[in-house]
Design a protein around this nucleic acid. Sequence first.
DNA 1: ACACTATTCCATAGAACTTTGGAGGATGTG
DNA 2: CACATCCTCCAAAGTTCTATGGAATAGTGT
Lengths: 219, 219
Amino acid sequence: MDDAVTKPMVFDQIARVGKALASGKRLELLDLLAQAERTVEALARAAGLGVTTVSAHLQTLKQGGLVATRKEGTRVYYRLASPAVARLYAAVRDVAVTHLADVAAAVTAFLGPGVENVTREQLLRRADRGEVTVIDVRPPEEYASGHIPGALSVPLDELPHRLEELPVDTEIVAYCRDAQCVLAPDAVRLLTDRGRPARQLADGMLEWRLAELPVEAGA
Amino acid sequence: MDDAVTKPMVFDQIARVGKALASGKRLELLDLLAQAERTVEALARAAGLGVTTVSAHLQTLKQGGLVATRKEGTRVYYRLASPAVARLYAAVRDVAVTHLADVAAAVTAFLGPGVENVTREQLLRRADRGEVTVIDVRPPEEYASGHIPGALSVPLDELPHRLEELPVDTEIVAYCRDAQCVLAPDAVRLLTDRGRPARQLADGMLEWRLAELPVEAGA
DNA sequence: ACACTATTCCATAGAACTTTGGAGGATGTG
DNA sequence: CACATCCTCCAAAGTTCTATGGAATAGTGT
């Protein structure tokens, strides 16, 4: 066994996974894919990048074994390769927000002033008793791909027009993609500004799936 | 809030963690640091790199919040910043061996023919009953920094000279750094070639710590 | 103060990565 | 079959990363 040759090779191979995580654009794509599978074009639109650029990034992610593909007619649907990848992505962000002061600062600047939140456990308990209305403020296709059982799909941009659909007597709990997602805080601020009692789930669908809690799919 | 500016910034910040994981050399350094804290020079020797190169890589790791430092006289000791980093490193390797066929191939080529192994649970049960002798075949400084309670320190290079110290009637279980570490398989092959009953722990000290099992420190 | 050690900082050449436009392949449609 | 759509492959330009010597800095011992 030639250690001098084979040992670095092992680490270089593993580094392919690291390289896949080494660009903000790719992390953004992963963030989207953690919510639902998508085509190359849909990803390009969502991330505001050129199609060829996205395709190139997706190749890098594929090289790292982070995403898998499915072909349907002329389209190619990308998805996370496995739940292990979601765990990895969560671990990366965990380290980032824990150890990088700048990240924490950027995140709060991005999220805006904090709003009151609820843990998964609290939500489960109170939802069982019918004490809260749970709304999913992500885009419809992400809701369709999997959501908290019993949650209503109310995409953030539709929320202003659909206030009357929501009961006035029970508290509203909004959730979105993950702990760093902006949609839920924005929704909660919008609701409380209109005098509705509202809070957000402390994290989002990513963490919900990782906790292996029940997920409902379909529109 | 200007999404077009702040959103990419968050991902770019998180990408600093990814960049830290994007080089085989840095992963090798992390691998070493997961076992014990070390000085720059010790790391350079262990990884076979120049001191300035290692220092530069360590700066990248620090930028990503993966390592922390401690100064003692003229030396600087580097260590993993937190257990969250060990979890992250384990998650990276998990994805690598699961999804990358080449990695799996490189690992087995590196480890040599498989030897029989034992899970942590089996080891705990059998060690309680005194049925096995557990040996730690890592370098002494890694043993000192933390090992399985009751394990003997028998560095791989000393093993041939110290065979008579080991009991002949009980089975020997060797362990080293982690699931991809070569030391334990080598030790087991050496022992079984000499007619001793021996197996290895399926993974290593990294996974033992992550499982939050008891750890003993000191020589 | 002086020599000495360990580490970091700096400059640089070479390698690798990102982005982009255009060509080309596969699939579905009129 | 011609044509449109969606995606990947290829090449080029600009940017970033890596490795490595030499200089600068901080701490130790005499």
